[in-house]
Design a protein around this nucleic acid. Structure first.
Lengths: 205, 205, 205, 205
DNA sequence: CATGAATGAGTATTCATTCAT
DNA sequence: AATGAATGAATACTCATTCAT
């Protein structure tokens, strides 16, 4: 890695601005429409200056990947998992996703673009795959806890169930369920599908 | 030179070959790596010849979209839906997806690429969106029939459940669950999540 | 020359049609916009067929040049010069030009295009230059006869005066004096400039 | 390579050099033979550099049109019109044209090419038409003054006469009267055609 | 005679990257 | 740090011409 563990260098407001411009450009036109010159324009600098900060386009894309990872991890960590009951934890995860879709949809779009690009670009895969694994693990952990305490079905396979949970989120992205009610309807069904009968009696899922 | 097949082919054959070459190239390098010259090389023709058959790159991409739609529809229609019990119908759908992933994975990869590109390219969206809607509808119909005859949970929402089913397929693509056992495990959980208790008693889900 | 003295070959309705299509295309888009394919389209034949009749584009342009020359000579010869008084002969020349501008303006446009092209293309110059020389000679002859019989100024230099006459026609093309009255006004001035005082007294120039 | 002058020139200098190269190329090969790559070669720069300074070929042609207009206006304004007698003013105009033909013939050739192109290209017409109108107006003004002060024929129509004057210049271009004596002969006739008898007595026209 | 298919050599334009200042 | 100018290597597309049938 060319970057120190967590954040960009202090002086690098520039790098942050570049990453932000790149991300918004990826949202608008996809990776195939990403042009260094346009990024420089949006940041308000010369291309030569852009290349002074980031030597190559590959490095630029890695910068974006890094910035995505930073944001993703920050969001994942925001809410404490300890102590809360599993159903609530899952609810938080789902709500977070919904909020991101509403308030910061470009995060998901860029993630999707990068995920696809990771297939042909190992340097991106290095960032994306751990994020996905981490995501799956978090959900699987919640499900496992929920099975243990009887919140979720006893026959629920946490590893597999996590893909189901994640799948609904993916589907809502791919099928553009931007309408909150539509998303709610899908999430409600997801919960009915995994909670135990006991939980169903006591909640309104 | 790569011209073993033959010179002077009718346009329709050439178009088929061009679409095939384009698809495999999209699989390998993504849309952003699609070059007309490389397609021509793979087909074994001159670029000018390529342009003789397909005037512009946009037309080429539409050709690919059309070919995808043709394949998708052909596959969707292959198995009869009438008469079979819902669980079996769903099983067939899932198996089909699994088989496609195994025998013809490029179909799914190209579909994913096109789906993403559809976001910025209306001419692609015109092909992709109907396919997705059709896919969702087919699954929802099966679920609805299964709820009606008691195969699936009485409280299953077919519309939402369809996204759950599709979501698992999407997740298996995105997370690359290429191992058949892993896929089985995910599918088994999916079925447990939607079948009724009565069905659970009588089958081995 | 590849062509027999005067006309195209008998069977060559095709050649005539090709020349006509080429000429109208030159009018619309200039030489730089002349495309063999488009000519073929207008004639209603395949490009390969076009090339069967006319081997190269250069030959095509020569064909056009030849057809121009044929038309030009035919028009120049249409009216008898013998016997008529010089003023009337000049009037006829001018009227002919006016009629051509009105009824067949493309003839003049193509001529202008070819004249320009002749500068860089010797094979065209071979056709164009004789036509121009002939044109000038015809006018100079008329003027000379008019000076001899007192119709035109005694100090009129027929050779130079011919350029003046021709110049007005050129200017009316270049400045697009398409309005008949405007053209009349220019021609009237031209006549006043060359006729003798005696003629002025007896006519209404 | 043809790079003797120097690398890294300011845009304005480059643009001037590009316009000059384009003009000489138009003279040699006509508009249809104008190739961006060849212009770049003559200027001694890379094609990409050419496009850095002038984005498109269309813009290049407009640049040429602009440079033509600049030169034309500069020349038209060089000699003062105020105070001089009309005959002398006209003489200056004609001499200027003769000089241009001798010292800078490419100016006239490019002008002719542009005039022709203006027929199919509105963006050129915007430059050419005003220049022509200005030219005609200047000559007409001189003639009008000459009629008023008795230098020219009392029955001379300045508007029409201007086309006659211009026509002789056009004819000398089209018929390539490059020989100074030939041009003189034509101009002398032109003057005889428009000056009054009184003027004829006092001058040697 | 006619044509569908094929092609070599261009043709303007683009883009990431580099250089001189 | 920053920038105006420069460039090599593409990139989609064009066009006159040829070939096989």
């Amino acid at each position: 890695m060319t970057h120190p563990p967590s954040k960009y260098q202090p002086t690098d407001d520039r790098k942050r601005a570049i990453a932000a411009a790149a991300r918004s450009l990826i949202v608008e036109k996809g990776f195939e429409g990403l042009r260094t010159r346009e990024i420089a324009d949006r940041v308000g600098i010369n291309i030569a200056t852009l290349h002074y900060h980031i030597p190559t386009k590959e490095a630029l894309i890695e910068l974006v990947a890094q910035s995505m990872k930073d944001d993703f991890m920050a969001q994942s960590m925001r809410h404490p998992r300890t102590g809360l009951p599993p159903l609530e934890q899952l609810q938080i995860k789902v709500d977070q996703h919904r909020e991101t879709r509403r308030d910061n949809p470009e995060l998901l779009l860029v993630m999707e673009e990068m995920g696809r690009r990771a297939r042909h670009d190992e340097s991106i895969a290095r960032y994306i795959n751990p994020m996905r694994a981490f995501w799956h693990q978090q959900v699987a952990d919640i499900l496992e806890a929920g099975v243990a305490d009887g919140t979720f079905r006893a026959d629920l396979d946490p590893w597999a169930g996590a893909y189901m949970v994640i799948g609904v989120m993916l589907a809502s992205s791919v099928f553009r369920l931007d309408d909150p009610e539509a998303l709610d309807r899908a999430v409600s069904e997801l919960l009915r599908a995994i909670v135990s009968d006991r939980t169903k009696e006591h909640s309104n899922v």
